[in-house]
């Protein structure tokens, strides 16, 4: 049961990561959070490969917070893999990015993202966004039940 993760946070920037975690904390979200520092690590975790090979793929996180600009495998690619796989398609994914580029937004939605949040410079805004997201997805959203 220790492997069961509520939130997968994919963020390469350590400051942003710290701020995000702080924001989640301040929002009193005590769920288990797994952090991935790049796209490849995120995929390893999700598909139980590499360091996470002993994990079961059925233990999907309740939500994935995904930055777009990531080392190795970028966020859109990760999203594509997730939504292209039957087993992981139903995991809610929230893009959490600095990019306001229309191109990124459109592509993300085309790939089937559930939400798209632009990180504001203002920390309070950021903290509010993170808090709202967490609450919504963890408390209100009822993910479809997989096989069992």
């Amino acid at each position: 049961m220790k492997d069961i993760v509520d939130i997968l946070l994919v963020e390469d920037n350590p400051q942003d990561l710290e701020l995000a975690l702080r924001a989640l904390q301040k929002a009193k979200i005590r769920n288990r959070i797994q952090v991935a520092r790049d796209g490849a690590e995120a995929l390893d975790f999700i598909f139980c490969e590499g360091n996470h090979h002993d994990r079961k793929i059925e233990d999907t996180p309740k939500v994935i917070l995904l930055d777009l600009k990531l080392p190795k495998v970028d966020g859109l690619e990760v999203l594509k893999r997730l939504k292209g796989d039957e087993r992981t398609r139903s995991i809610p994914v929230v893009i959490l990015t600095s990019s306001r580029e229309q191109k990124d937004i459109v592509e993300s939605y085309q790939l089937g993202v559930n939400s798209y949040i632009v990180k504001p410079v203002n920390f309070e805004g950021f903290a509010n966004a993170v808090r709202d997201l967490g609450l919504y997805w963890l408390l209100l959203n009822q993910p479809p039940q997989l096989e069992n």
């Binding site: 920037n13 400051q15 942003d16 701020l19 702080r22 777009l68 600009k69 990015t97 600095s98 990019s99 306001r100 580029e101 990180k119 504001p120 410079v121 203002n122 920390f123 309070e124 950021f126």
Partner: peptide, 22 residues
């Protein structure tokens, strides 16, 4: 360029603001 500005210039600002707030 603007893509990079959008991502990379805003990130340090967020750090400044965020940690000042912290």
């Amino acid at each position: 360029f603007s893509y990079s500005v959008s991502h990379d210039l805003r990130s340090p600002l967020r750090t400044l603001d965020g940690f000042s707030q912290a």
